[in-house]
Amino acid sequence: MAVETIPASAPRAVPPTVSPERRRRRRRVRSFLNYVALTIAAVVVLTPIYVTIAFSLQTGPQALQFPGSMWPGELDLSVFRRVFEVSGIGRYLFNSALVAALITVGQVLTSITAAYVFAELEFKGRNLLFVAFLATLMVPAEVTIVANYDTIVSFGWLDSYQGLVVPFLATAFGTFLIRQAFMGIPRDLRDAAKLDGYGHMGFLWSVAVPLARPAIAALSVFSFLLAWNQYLWPLLITNDDDFRTVQIGLRTLASSNITEFNLVFAGTVVASIPIFVLLIVFQKQLVRGLTSGAVKG
């Protein structure tokens, strides 16, 4: 059999070269374009926040002017006190905090236990059941809202905390997120825990949950955010001010204080503060939780 050989003198393909100066320039241009894109994104995100704060610091007539000013008026923080006086926003904030906290605790607990079952226990039809569970993510909340409303009415839970909380105690997203975290735990750790004398519950609470902390923190923040920002469901099942949440309260504030627009903006600022604090405190966990398992590390 003839063997083809490359003569030693054959010219070799030389890879194209780029001068270091040109490479540096390219890098600088790419970096500049990145900064431009990020600045535009930041402006888009921050403008509504700035406008809300600026308008809340204007007087009532100033806020109603057209075209209005984008600059805050005098630094008069009394508007924030007034918003508590003229509306029941204090009660609304309390209701939102309570409902969001209960929903968060509930979702975290049900997600942890369901995720453990889907990640660790072997039973017939497990994968099918998990797919069916995940499929509920595809169903928009509006589709089930009438059925949920009927159920809550039949339980007599209109105008009640349980009506606000119970329909949201389980989440397919949370189960999925934590199941992924549990599946990243090496099998040897489960085996070691078994030999160390721990059953499923022992392993779950002593090993799996501490190791899945970033995902659990991310889920907690998400659950709280979603629960805090709920609008349609609380509007539907509450008529009594004692059970209304802050988002409904803001709507009421807006419709009953049309001449004091700054008050509405001040209320919005007050309602946003807990969420901002939460995001700032848990920023790291949120990012780590959502990206955990994305890369091998």
Binding site: D188, D191, A192, K194, L195, G199
Partner: peptide
């Protein structure tokens, strides 16, 4: 396993 009175050392060490 927990009732067999054994201890095991794993290749990966399996430390928590």
């Amino acid at each position: 396993p927990q009732h067999r009175d054994l201890a095991m050392v794993f290749q990966s060490y399996a430390l928590y």
